[in-house]
Simulated scan of single mutants.
Amino acid sequence: MEKTRTDAIEAAVFRRLLEHLDSRKDVQNIELMNLAGFCRNCLSKWYVAAAEEMGESVDYDAARERVYGVPYGEWKDKYQREASAEQLAAFNNKNT
């Protein structure tokens, strides 16, 4: 498969992942981290890094808005819940 075609498919998959995450605002970042080892913020950091690798400068807040679909503060105010003691314990156990 040609690189341009592969890139287009991968871009479509990324857009679909963002759509899926947008449809699952009930899934908290700590849950994603505990189960999958990455979260929306990780995707934002990867977006910034990929842009830099291609010679583009993308601000982290702009990347988070791309991933979250709205400014991060707005998403956090509307959808982020306080992490439970169990979630925090699981996160800390994986990261020690």
Rank of each mutant, 00 (worst) to 15 (best):
G69A: 08
E82N: 10
R40V: 03
D77G: 02
N93R: 15
R5L: 12
T96H: 09
R24G: 07
G73C: 08
A89K: 12
V67Y: 01
E19R: 15
D61K: 14
F14P: 02
R64Q: 11
F91D: 05
E82Q: 08
E10A: 12
A50M: 10
K25S: 05
Q80M: 13
D26P: 06
N41Y: 15
W46I: 11
L35P: 06
T96F: 00
P71A: 00
G55K: 11
S84P: 00
K25L: 00
R64V: 04
K94S: 05
N93S: 13
Y47V: 03
A62R: 11
D26W: 02
W75R: 05
K78A: 10
C39F: 08
V27T: 05
V70H: 00
V27N: 05
G37Q: 12
Q87C: 08
M54F: 00
D7V: 04
K94D: 01
A51R: 07
L88C: 05
S23V: 05
G55A: 12
F38I: 13
R5M: 11
R64I: 01
L43Y: 06
Y79G: 00
Q80F: 09
F14W: 12
D59W: 14
R16S: 04
E19G: 15
A83P: 07
V70G: 06
I30M: 01
P71N: 00
W75A: 08
C42L: 10
Q80A: 14
R5I: 11
Q87L: 02
H20K: 07
A50I: 03
K94N: 07
G73V: 07
A62C: 11
L17C: 10
R5C: 05
K76H: 09
G55F: 12
R81E: 11
A36S: 13
D22L: 12
V67H: 01
D7G: 00
A36M: 13
Q28A: 10
A12F: 08
A89H: 12
R64Y: 07
N29E: 15
S23K: 11
E82M: 12
G69E: 02
E74C: 03
M1H: 11
L88V: 01
V48K: 06
E2D: 15
K25D: 14
D22M: 06
G73D: 09
V13W: 07
P71S: 04
C42T: 15
M33Y: 09
G37P: 08
R66T: 13
S23G: 11
Q87P: 03
W75T: 09
L88Q: 02
A85G: 14
E86C: 04
Y47P: 02
N92V: 12
L17Y: 04
S57T: 12
A51H: 03
A8S: 14
A11S: 14
V58Q: 05
Y47M: 02
R66I: 14
N95S: 14
G69L: 07
V58K: 13
E65S: 08
W75P: 02
E19S: 15
Y68D: 01
G37N: 13
R24Q: 04
A90K: 02
R81K: 15
G37K: 06
R81Y: 03
A49C: 08
Q87Y: 00
E74I: 06
K94F: 03
L32H: 03
E53P: 03
E65M: 11
A49K: 10
A83Q: 04
A12Q: 13
D61W: 08
E2H: 12
P71M: 00
E19Q: 12
A11C: 13
D26G: 05
A62I: 11
G69S: 02
R81C: 09
L43M: 13
A11K: 13
